[in-house]
């Protein structure tokens, strides 16, 4: 999560600060580094709020709730004061399970996000930087990896791994290996456009080592893109793991939102009408994914200046329209006075 928080927390501070949304004529230009941060919009605020609240729930929730596995003789009761989200068939507290499952899913998401982003960075950025045969080979490799459908591949791989050795890291690795290709392509395209700029050439000509040119000269330009790809990777990983766990192929020793849904489905929650059992886990995934997508939406505006200018134009147009209305009203009032 490091990238996202680094990107967005100053933006949150910006909102609460006195100089929120400095617009209007005559404001000072935003400093260079601030142009790397998304502008605060209601949607971004919602996204940040969702992600922060759910992350906190995943981190702190398990410390506050009771044992999620404890079996009671109050099977399948609806939400009540004692059990906020009711109980499962064997009387386990759904809310407590939700807290632990959220933590499990976030863990998977973070691990896979980091590995997948690293892989796509290697194949995308390094390949495009080296150019020539290396670039061709890497690009072909990622295109092939892209067209081979991920989940069926994961299912087949999981089918061949015995249940005992199917741990959290195995699943994370399999998910990462099957999901890096799309962002490698995006990063390659971006790197190609940066690679031939003068300052990169200057840095190379002055004998800098390749890794230094990549890290110091190229990487900062790609930060918004990488952040956006990382966010995508996290969403994809949480969704992918949930799917795997739902069909019983998840990590054997972990509890995630997917395993919760797996148990709900196998406990006939659907036909028994126990909505409190299968609605919360999916809703949690959907809301977290939505929060991350909304953050991405704002990062998009940094990457694509056409989308960014759009909002400024819209604001100016609105103000112009308001001014015009005011003028005509004032004109009409003067008419009436006369």
């Amino acid at each position: 999560m490091t990238n996202v928080t680094a990107q967005t927390q100053p933006a949150a501070a910006e909102l609460t600060g006195p100089a929120a949304e400095p617009d209007g004529p005559g404001t000072r230009a935003r400093p260079g580094w601030r142009s790397l941060l998304p502008t605060m919009t209601p949607w971004l605020a919602i996204g940040l709020g969702l992600v922060i609240v759910i992350t906190l729930f995943g981190i702190l929730g398990p410390l506050l709730v009771g044992d999620p596995q404890r079996i009671r003789d109050q099977g399948l009761t609806g939400p009540s004061a004692q059990f906020w989200l009711g109980t499962t068939q064997t009387g386990q507290d759904v809310f407590a399970q939700l807290a632990f499952a959220t933590r499990g899913s976030l863990e998977i998401g973070a691990i896979v996000g980091v590995i997948a982003t690293a892989l796509s960075g290697f194949f995308g950025i390094y390949g495009a930087y080296r150019g020539g045969v290396v670039d061709e080979a890497f690009s072909l490799f990622s295109n092939v990896a892209l067209v081979i459908p991920g989940l069926p591949l994961i299912i087949v791989i999981s089918g061949f791994v015995p249940r005992e050795s199917r741990g959290l890291w195995t699943i994370a690795l399999v998910l990462a290996v099957t999901s890096w290709a799309a962002s490698a392509r995006v990063l390659r395209a971006q790197t190609l456009s940066v690679r031939h700029r003068d300052y990169v050439a200057a840095s190379r000509a002055s004998g800098e080592k390749p890794w230094r040119v990549i890290v110091v000269e190229i990487l900062p330009n790609l930060l918004p893109v990488i952040a956006s790809q990382f966010v995508f990777a996290v969403i994809a990983a949480i969704l992918g793991e949930a799917g795997l766990a739902f069909i019983g192929l998840g990590a054997s020793n972990s509890s995630t939102l997917g395993t919760m849904l797996f148990y709900a489905q196998n406990g006939f929650a659907l036909s028994l009408g126990a909505w409190w059992w299968f609605v919360p886990p999916g809703l949690m995934i959907a809301l977290f994914g939505m929060g991350l997508s909304l953050i991405n939406f704002s990062i998009d505006e940094i990457i694509n200046p056409k989308l960014k200018n759009l909002r400024r134009h819209r604001r100016l147009a609105k103000r112009a329209a308001r001014l015009e209305r005011e003028l005509t009203r004032r004109g009409a009032a003067q008419e009436a006075d006369r």
Binding site: W275, G282, A286, M290, F297
Partner: peptide
């Protein structure tokens, strides 16, 4: 619409079925 895009397929299926 990002909410729709982030919904797990099988969960949406469960809800619709329900």
């Amino acid at each position: 619409t990002t909410l729709m895009a982030a919904v797990p397929y099988f969960w949406l299926a469960l809800i619709l079925a329900y």
